[in-house]
Design a protein around this nucleic acid. Structure first.
Length: 1073
RNA sequence: GCCUUGGUGGCGGAAUUGGUAGACGCGCUGGAUUCAAAAUCCAGUGUCUUCGGACGUGUGGGUUCGAUUCCCACCCAAGGUACCA
């Protein structure tokens, strides 16, 4: 009986679903294990073979843990809010909810075919109101919390209010806005309700702030940094301006230190930890203020004279110990002060430099360390201690976005400052004892002894730093500071398809909707674009106002006059036109927030929601969170390193502080699965231009290399114009593709040679067909002849993606399929190989629909089955590494499964006659070797090697003709996490009823592996030359004697006396000589 | 530039604490079976070779009886990035 994977897989998938085999219970005597894969965004393209890689790994581990006696939670869901559905909605008008639903159904179908042990009863969707109710709930908790630096945790905002009432904010140490004023208890108690709200916003963990965004007026939307190219929008090339917008922010900076410290307690990949560490970017040092020397300022700068007699430049430095080495300052060209301090003489140069800098990208400025550039502003700052003037420069090596956007330059201690000073002939004072700085800067803190520095002389880096900070504090021009690169996270998005904020505005001040009225559901809108007045898409909703009395969403028309959104906008229908709306009548009805939450909102607590996903009373019950605690194993892509994985840790810390969860870190172990890359196929064109003989063509070695269009003087203007049109039409050889072998000739010979001449002839023949015909139609057949001209002095190649499905294993293209694929290729022509085939070139790229290199798992399941696909994905290589997909290789694991099936033949077809065979010592050795290796592999997440182990095991048992049930039964369990369908089927055929899922994992017994002899490799100077077999209990001395006495040894030594003999018992013998 | 990861046959990869380099699979070659193909089975398959053997894990050094593995310097590729003061 053959291995009918289609039947078997359908049968068991149905069985698992019907019997809820993988349903996890929230109470059990078994130890718990929570295995989680990052949930996907359900895109319209469906799953490709790269997606399930991590899911398969998590599934194998989950199934293994079930065999090991754990109560396993292995859920799956969808991160279903997101931009693609919204963009599709903008294009087609279809509601994103519908698109999303369709995509989810498709994903579910695909996932079901792969035989995962998900507990589907716990599925969550971030766009489901029942789910985002709790995302809104967390937002409210954050709003109602502040960060107390004394207790080093988040606390209820009420504790802050009561402190304010008693003693004002003088003794409060909190994470808050920089511009928070100080006030007494009396002040506080006399403040208006609105002022109180404004002040509290400066402390809340989520707060409204004016944030600069990239606003594109033409598109009416905010753009991400990577949507902007050279200052204009990537789409359409419209101008982009920096615009302040009132947006919600998350005070993640309050947690900077704890997020950093927490990394020491979790088993996450080091590169990921590094990337979070760098993102948080902690540096210790001092903030120092330098006064700008006013007498050097522009005399007619009235603003400075009147308002800013003591203009200051604040810098952050990690080396306050080197303060006496400062010989200039550098401001970022974008720095606010630049325009104010620049002297008239320097104005032109500075402005030109600022303009030039604006055109460079930050990446560009950052990567280019070789060119030194900058301009002197003409202004001077005053050294805080020596009172000496310090020239102020601007330079693009200083970035405005970090620290204060200004640097105190210490050329003797910093290489960049050093290079800058050398380049512009600025003084380089040496403040290090016994160090030569004539060639380069000296940046070694460990061996630093400060000199020429007044009160710092003779001190080490540490001592001097401490002392310098103390002195700066004394004169009020600086203080010790820990600087973080991490910024508070903007939490507002001007989009439709996201969580609505549970927020309405009374007189511009945000109010939270009470939890019992959640969820606040997304309103329906006519169109998903921003409004004409530039409001987010929710501004299109007609029913988007909050009736605070009746606690429901009502029509915008009812909004009171005094109700304002925070940036002063009134909601549509409020006081437009005559302004006669009746305020009294509509009292208590307020505009709702028009922004929605960002993509990471829904994914920041989903792992906890899975613990109790149907709970409508709480985000999860206490029992559920107390039982499951945290995620034991989390598998997902490394691209989420600083997005999802940092923000979710922040929320978890917050939830921990407020006592909702028992663990501050939610995932003990995390693994980044590597990407599966695709092998793209390219058809190639070569870049020729055409011109016409009689034209001023220059020939070089018989090949035309340049073209013009001036010498066809014998033609009329009309005829010339027609030829120009033809030239344009045939520009490059657009529809003429060259096989890889043909291209290869050109690539090999960028200079002229006979090969390319021959091919050129071929090309000409192609053209004369089409082009010749057109020339004939113009009546110019006898006047001109087309000539092909190389562009520039090298051949240029153009490649176009071809759908990989059209290419066979020998890289041969199905030309007809390609022609029918897209209309533009319909009449394309192909210059093939000598044997008539047409070959494509191949390149490894990220698997993506746009690169036409995706491989669909459905097709693989259809042809080889899910078990083959699962095994093959694991067999490809180490889980964490990226590796190319090659469908051809799957036959290896497929035939393994067939061999496995055959091994069980006596049980499968019931042909076993007589008494069942006892296992032989050989059988047992093979089995236990396999148990040991597979168990170790799973524990180490080395799934690729266990597939090899299975193959070896089946090869050996087949050779041994093993039919023993006591071997085949445990083998089925071993295989079951990897290839669950076939394992279930074999288990049943072995005579068991019920699922194999919870059968105990076989126990390894070392006694079956004990050997009586060992084949020793005998090496000479480390090179293995031959092998000799000795009993395992033979001692080193005896082995040495036996080896030396052996004739092969003598042969190797050729009469030399061995200098040394190393015998490692059980391992190796090495003879030196 | 910096950070991270990686570099082993034609390809994916294996080698667990420094101990037989290339397991396992693909591909390829030859053979069996077949009218033929697919499928299946058997044998071979790192390179060079004077058929004794020699060489071989990105390059160059080093440590060691012994290095894919440890150390130093460098080259290349991929991903990330913030010249972070």
């Amino acid at each position: 009986m053959n291995y009918d994977f289609r039947k078997i897989e359908a049968k068991w998938q149905e069985y698992w679903a019907k019997n809820k085999t993988f349903k996890a219970s929230n109470n059990s005597d078994k130890p718990k294990f929570y295995a989680l894969s990052m949930f996907p965004y359900p895109s319209g393209a469906g799953l490709h073979v790269g997606h399930p890689l991590g899911y398969i790994a998590t599934d194998i581990y989950s199934r293994y843990k079930r065999h090991k006696g754990f109560n396993v939670l292995h859920p799956m869901g969808y991160d279903s809010f997101g931009l693609p559905a919204e963009q599709y909605a903008i294009q087609t008008g279809q509601h994103p909810a519908i698109t999303t639903e369709n995509n989810i159904n498709r994903y579910r179908e695909q996932l079901d075919r792969l035989g995962f042990s998900f507990d589907w009863d716990r599925e969550v969707r971030t766009s489901d109101p029942k789910y985002y109710k709790w995302t809104q709930w967390i937002f409210i908790q954050l709003f109602n919390s502040w960060y107390n630096k004394k207790s080093d945790k988040a606390e209820d905002i009420e504790t802050l209010i009561s402190t304010f009432e008693k003693e004002g904010n003088a003794n409060v140490e909190a994470a808050c806005d920089d511009d928070t004023p100080s006030f007494s208890a009396t002040d506080w108690n006399n403040f208006s309700a609105k002022t109180k709200q404004e002040l509290l916003l400066k402390y809340r963990l989520t707060y409204l702030a004016d944030t600069e965004v990239n606003w594109c007026p033409a598109l009416g939307t905010v753009l991400a940094n990577d949507e902007i190219v050279n200052g204009v929008s990537e789409r359409g090339g419209y101008p982009v301006i920096r615009k302040k917008m009132t947006q919600w922010s998350m005070r993640i900076t309050a947690y900077a230190q704890r997020l950093l410290d927490g990394l020491d307690h979790i088993d996450w990949p080091q590169p990921l930890k590094d990337s979070q560490t760098n993102w948080i970017g902690r540096s210790e040092g001092a903030s120092v203020k330098f006064r700008v020397m006013s007498e050097k300022l522009r005399v007619d700068n009235s603003e400075l004279k009147t308002q800013n007699p003591s203009l200051e430049i604040e810098v952050f430095t990690t080396r306050p110990d080197t303060i006496f080495g400062v010989s200039f300052m550098t401001l970022a060209p974008e720095h606010d002060l630049v325009a104010k301090i620049t002297t008239p003489e320097q104005k032109a140069a500075v402005e030109a430099y600022v303009e030039a800098t604006a055109k460079r990208s930050e990446r560009d400025r950052m990567a280019d360390v070789k060119t030194v550039s900058g301009v002197f502003t003409g202004a001077y700052a005053e050294h805080p201690f020596t009172k000496e003037p310090i020239p102020i420069w601007i330079g693009d090596y200083v970035l405005a976005s970090y620290g204060t956007g200004a640097v105190m330059a210490v050329p003797c201690g910093d290489q960049r400052d050093y290079d800058f000073a050398k380049h512009y002939n600025i003084d380089i004072p040496n403040i290090f004892e016994g160090v030569d700085i004539s060639e380069e800067a000296f940046a070694d803190k460990a061996t630093t002894i400060i000199a020429n520095s007044d009160f710092l002389n003779g001190l080490s880096y540490k001592e001097a730093t401490k002392k310098a900070i103390a002195e700066l504090e004394k004169i009020g021009q600086g203080k010790g500071k820990v600087n973080y690169r991490l910024r508070d996270a903007v939490f507002s998005r001007q989009r439709y398809w996201g969580e609505p904020f549970p927020v309405y505005y009374v007189d511009g001040m945000p109010q939270m909707i009470d939890v019992e009225h959640l969820p606040l559901e997304l309103p329906e809108v006519e169109k998903y674009l921003p409004t004409e007045t530039g409001e987010p898409p929710l501004g299109n909703a007609t029913h988007w106002a909050w009736d605070a009395k009746n606690k429901k969403v009502v029509s915008n028309d009812l909004v009171t006059l005094s109700a304002r959104l925070p940036d002063g906008q009134a909601v549509e229908g409020s006081d437009k036109g005559d302004g006669m709306l009746n305020q009294v009548q509509h009292d208590g009805i307020y505009p709702l927030e028009l922004n929605t939450m960002p993509g990471w909102a829904g994914s920041s607590q989903y792992f906890n929601r899975y613990m109790d996903p149907r709970n409508n009373e709480a985000i999860f019950s206490k029992e559920a969170i107390d039982y499951w605690q945290d995620v034991d194993l989390y598998i997902g892509g490394s691209e989420h390193a600083t997005g999802h994985l940092l923000y979710s840790r922040f929320w978890q810390h917050f939830m921990f502080d407020r006592g909702y969860v028992p663990k501050a870190e939610y995932a003990q172990k995390l693994i980044n699965q590597g990407m599966i890359t695709g092998e793209s196929a390219f058809v190639n064109r070569i870049g020729f231009n055409i011109t016409f003989e009689g034209d001023d063509v220059i020939f070089k070695n018989n090949i035309p290399v340049t073209s013009g269009f001036g010498a066809l003087s014998f033609l009329s203007e009309d005829e010339k114009q027609s030829l120009r049109l033809l030239q344009e039409k045939y520009k490059f050889i657009k529809k003429h593709f060259l096989s890889e072998g043909v291209i290869h000739h050109f690539k090999k010979s960028n200079d002229e040679n006979e090969v390319s001449l021959e091919i050129r002839e071929k090309l000409t023949n192609f053209f004369t067909k089409d082009l010749g015909k057109e020339i004939e139609e113009l009546g110019l057949k006898n006047k001109v002849r087309p000539v092909f001209v190389r562009i520039g002095n090298k051949y240029s190649f153009y490649k176009t993606h071809a759908l990989v499905d059209f290419v066979n294993l020998k890289n041969e293209l199905d030309v007809d399929a390609f022609k029918n694929w897209q209309t533009e290729y319909k009449d394309a022509e192909f210059i093939g190989e000598d044997d008539g085939t047409f070959k494509v070139s191949r390149e490894i790229e990220k698997m993506s629909k746009s690169k036409y290199n995706v491989v669909n798992p459905d097709a693989i399941c259809e042809e080889y089955g899910a078990d083959s696909l699962r095994l093959y994905e694991m067999f490809l290589g180490p889980l964490e590494q990226s590796k190319p997909w090659n469908t051809a290789g799957i036959t290896g694991v497929f035939s393994f499964l067939k061999k496995l099936w055959k091994l069980y033949a006596p049980y499968v077809d019931g042909s076993l006659s007589g008494v069942e065979a006892e296992p032989t010592a050989e059988n047992l050795k093979t089995l236990h070797k396999t148990i040991k290796k597979v168990e170790e592999d799973i524990e180490n997440f080395s799934f690729n090697t266990s597939v090899s182990t299975f193959m070896i095991c089946v090869n050996e048992l087949t050779a041994q003709k093993c039919t023993s049930k006591s071997i085949l039964e445990p083998l089925a369990v071993l295989v079951s996490p990897y290839a669950p369908h076939i394992a279930e089927e074999l288990w049943e055929r072995l005579g068991h009823s019920g699922s194999i899922a919870e059968v105990p994992f076989p126990k390894f017994e070392g006694k079956y592996l004990v050997e009586s002899s060992k084949e020793y490799p005998i090496s000479f100077n480390g090179k293995m030359r031959f092998k000799l077999e000795f009993p395992t209990d033979m001692d080193s001395k005896a082995i040495e004697a036996a080896v030396l006495a052996h004739e092969k040894t003598q042969e190797q030594l050729q009469g030399r006396a061995p200098k040394k003999v190393i015998v490692v018992p059980g391992k190796i013998v090495n003879i030196v000589g």
